[in-house]
Design a protein around this nucleic acid. Structure first.
Lengths: 121, 121
DNA sequence: ACGGTTCCCTACTTTTTGGTAAGTTGTTGC
DNA sequence: GCAACAACTTACCAAAAAGTAGGGAACCGT
C-alpha cells in the first residue's frame, strides 16, 4: 500500500488514476492537448454537457495537481487561458492512445465519428 | 454527440472511458495484463480493498464488454480463470503507460514503490 | 459430518459524484 | 445606464457508485 497526500493507493496504476480519474478530467486534459490552450468559455463550449460547477471544480483540481496551468491573460477585462503544464504534457501518449482506441472501436462498429463530433482534431 | 448502446458520448476519449472508467476496472485489467490469468480468489487477494460485490460486478461488465474472458476450468469443483481477451490486450499500451507514469511520479516524490507494493511486476 | 474454500449473489446503507439554478464581480459595448 | 459577457462561486438536491454484511451452493479434506 502506497500512501501519498494522505490517500492510500494499491499500486502505481492507482496513483495515476488518482490524477486523471473522474468523469471530466481526461476530457479536459485531452481537449487542452488538441487545442494547446483554451479559455474557460471555450472549454465549456467544447465539453458538451459539463456544468460550470464541474468545470471549475475539475480545473481547480487539475491546477492543484500541476497538470494544467492557468494564466491570467488580462486583468482589466479579466481573461484567462488554460493549458497543459509539463506534467500534463507528459501524459500526451495517453490522450492519443485513448482517443485512437475509441476511434478504432467506433469504426469497428460502423460509426464514423468524424461526422458526428465537433471538437477533437 | 455519439450514440452507442443507448448511451451518449461526446468524443472518442469518452467512448474509451465508458469501458475502463470506474474505480476498479483498470486495476483489474492491468492485473490480468501482468498475471496473464487469474482466479476469482487470486484477483480478490491482489486488489487490496475490493469488495466481492464490486469485483464480481466489474468482472461481469468487463466480460459483457468483451475485454476479458472467463473460462470455467473445472465443473466438479467449480473453478474459473479470468484473462484478457483480444480487445483487452489491445489496451496493453495503456496499462504499461499508466503504470510507468505512476512509478515515475512516485520516484519523483521519493517513494520507492517496489518496497511497498506486492503485486505489479 | 464438519470446517474450510471457491465463487459468487442480494438487500441495504453510505459516500461520492454530479446536476440545477441562482448569484457575484468586473468588464465592454451601445 | 443597461444589457451582455467572461469567469467564476455557492447552496441545495438527485443520482450513481461503492461499501457492508450477510447468505448460499458445491466441493474437498479429515
Amino acid at each position: 500500500m502506497i500512501t501519498l497526500h494522505d490517500k492510500k493507493y494499491t499500486c502505481p496504476v492507482d496513483v495515476t488514476l488518482g490524477f486523471i480519474g473522474g468523469k471530466w478530467k481526461l476530457l479536459i486534459l485531452s481537449h487542452l492537448h488538441w487545442q494547446e490552450q483554451s479559455s474557460y468559455t471555450r472549454l465549456k463550449e467544447n465539453l458538451p454537457g459539463v456544468s460550470e460547477k464541474m468545470l471549475s471544480q475539475q480545473l481547480k483540481e487539475l491546477e492543484r495537481d500541476l497538470l494544467i496551468t492557468k494564466q491570467v491573460v488580462s486583468r482589466k477585462p479579466y481573461r484567462v487561458m488554460y493549458s497543459l503544464s509539463g506534467e500534463g504534457k507528459s501524459l500526451a501518449p495517453l490522450y492519443e492512445f485513448v482517443s485512437e482506441w475509441g476511434v478504432r472501436y467506433l469504426k469497428k462498429h460502423g460509426i464514423d465519428y468524424i461526422q458526428d463530433q465537433h471538437l477533437y482534431k
